[in-house]
Design a protein around this nucleic acid. Sequence first.
DNA 1: TATGAATGAGCTTTCATTCAT
DNA 2: AATGAATGAAAGCTCATTCAT
Lengths: 210, 210, 210, 210
Amino acid sequence: MNRNSNHNSQTQGRKEREWELRRQEILDAAQKIFEKGGYFNATMAQIASEAEFGVGTLYQFFPNKQGLFAEVILREVESFMQGLRDLLSTRSLWQEQLKLFVEYKLTWVDKRPEFQRLVMEIFYAPIHDVAPQIIDEFKELHMENLQILQDIFIQANKDGYTFDPDLMSIATMGTLNAIASDWYMGLLKKAPIEYISGVLNGILGGKRDV
Amino acid sequence: MNRNSNHNSQTQGRKEREWELRRQEILDAAQKIFEKGGYFNATMAQIASEAEFGVGTLYQFFPNKQGLFAEVILREVESFMQGLRDLLSTRSLWQEQLKLFVEYKLTWVDKRPEFQRLVMEIFYAPIHDVAPQIIDEFKELHMENLQILQDIFIQANKDGYTFDPDLMSIATMGTLNAIASDWYMGLLKKAPIEYISGVLNGILGGKRDV
Amino acid sequence: MNRNSNHNSQTQGRKEREWELRRQEILDAAQKIFEKGGYFNATMAQIASEAEFGVGTLYQFFPNKQGLFAEVILREVESFMQGLRDLLSTRSLWQEQLKLFVEYKLTWVDKRPEFQRLVMEIFYAPIHDVAPQIIDEFKELHMENLQILQDIFIQANKDGYTFDPDLMSIATMGTLNAIASDWYMGLLKKAPIEYISGVLNGILGGKRDV
Amino acid sequence: MNRNSNHNSQTQGRKEREWELRRQEILDAAQKIFEKGGYFNATMAQIASEAEFGVGTLYQFFPNKQGLFAEVILREVESFMQGLRDLLSTRSLWQEQLKLFVEYKLTWVDKRPEFQRLVMEIFYAPIHDVAPQIIDEFKELHMENLQILQDIFIQANKDGYTFDPDLMSIATMGTLNAIASDWYMGLLKKAPIEYISGVLNGILGGKRDV
DNA sequence: TATGAATGAGCTTTCATTCAT
DNA sequence: AATGAATGAAAGCTCATTCAT
């Protein structure tokens, strides 16, 4: 799950568990600070203070500020993705999967409005230039989202729909992200979750090839 | 209207024209640097060097780094909006307007792939906090986009379509922005302009209420 | 009179007179700005703007900021001294001269409360280090003050007083300057001119050697 | 009372004592640099170099240049005042107190000739504008001086003298400060301490109302 | 002669990172 | 292992001075 935890939790000793605990405390603190003002306005001292550790301690767990930021982002994105994977694996009908996908994403946006901002920060240069592995990993996860949607639309076409899976996956993600952005900007008339049925209708309404 | 529109050389002296020229040179240089590494990684020294001016000169034309950034963003966004307004005013049928809108946006994305990143940078906290007038002005322009699309979908409904104009304006913008983002990230299979007909079909296909 | 004016005003042409006029305008403007915030907070641009000249023009009349400041100070101090000399030359009795001295100084303080501050600024380092000629000239004028007072007290001793001229000249100047400082600081209960008789009484009262 | 008086090493840990030590080292270095060229010519880099610390370290102990300057001034002034208070509290006769006051001030001037300049710098505009608490605190201490002298002269009047306490306090301070200034400027024939008896004679000589 | 646009050295201040304890 | 004092490079911005017009 976590890239730095031992895979076999049976063999973890107290030491390892405490270490992982402190690591997560730091990540929690860092996420809070990063969400407040973005990467550049966060300082290691603020994060250390929030985490109730010394500044030096942060560097025992993470190589530098960028590495800490990367872990925060990826932990959140992976948490989102894992929840999505778990959810979709419970259903096999594409209609149900599409509904769950839209519900899950918009519920997440509702609960974690800063998430969108945090994710958008990835496209910034310093992370671009100096920590390309983050952007790569993020791209992969973004593509996983698109692939899930494409598979759904491919299934739909087997039921007589005529979606362009490539375009529709982009359009669906784009629509959901636009709802998130506009919500974050305060431009939305309704809460994100109230758009669920509208989005589904918009996708499915009258699209069947008969 | 447009703050850069005093191009009436009839009433401008040589001084004014040269002043405006230098101002645009600085804005060009700043845009280049800002696009490369984002607001925070850009330094005034880099911009000055790129513009082939001394650092002090930048401060003769702009009050500070933020002000310069704001002008860069707004110049670009307003240029986009003005082109859009001019274009749409030539047609009155909603179908034609929608087609022009999608074409215009995707053509722009094709020509200026950095534009999306530049615009996304606005949502960052520091600019948020310290220069709220930028974010306000940007919001207004974003809402103008949405309003144009809503008007188009309202017209469409008079022709028997059953669009939800609110949702469809968000979805259309979101889809176009997603194409822009994915293009910028290198995740797109085709160039943005190749998605034009797909997007239009996706919106219009089978949506008529009959 | 003015160190930069031709001595023979008969031979001054229009050019010379206009030049001197502009010079004084700049000095007036500079004095106003220097008095407002001191030497370091004044900028050449402010002074130029106040004088309604271009910045470059300032450098046609004065070598640099320090030189301009020096001229401002010395013009004021010399004006003070010249007025004092003229005034004292009208009387020969030491009692009258002492009275005039005290009156003159305190009236000046009343009219030009910033004068004290301006003069104190001389002791600052930049002028100290880089323009020692100013401090020297100022010292000379300060010593002229002390000498005038010493002469008065020497005369007084011939009338039976037992002043220590050296100490009394310092004490008298110090008292008058203290009134000026405290007035400038807003710590004085009465206006400077209301201290005139008190100061004279304090010096003369019961001092006669009988 | 005195902000630097936490010298009770009983209750202080090693950390606290070392912290206070470094703080004083920085203040010493800053005082040296400020005395040399005044507030504006001093740079934080010079002070850091003199203190043998990095520049950043200065900002761990003081909020900014102005704060550092304020502490330097107030440390010195309060040290002067505390010594004065302690000294005067040992005697109750006004004659003795006046003698001690004059001696103390002139001895201080002798030992710390830069002190006067440092104090005069307070009256400068920038410090005036931006750090008004310094000027306020300084005014209070100056007024404490004047009050001490006024009390002395009020006592004297009970013994038959006819001093104007208000004026005499100003005159006495002014005289002592004038000795300090002239000494600093190199205009004095004798060392400050050699003026002690002269000043006392000047004040008391023949002043009794009989 | 008068100008003011252009300059760039130099300032204060911040903060990620290190390392002695 | 945990600390946080110390660091110093690097940033934004100012302004006295110059010089082409």
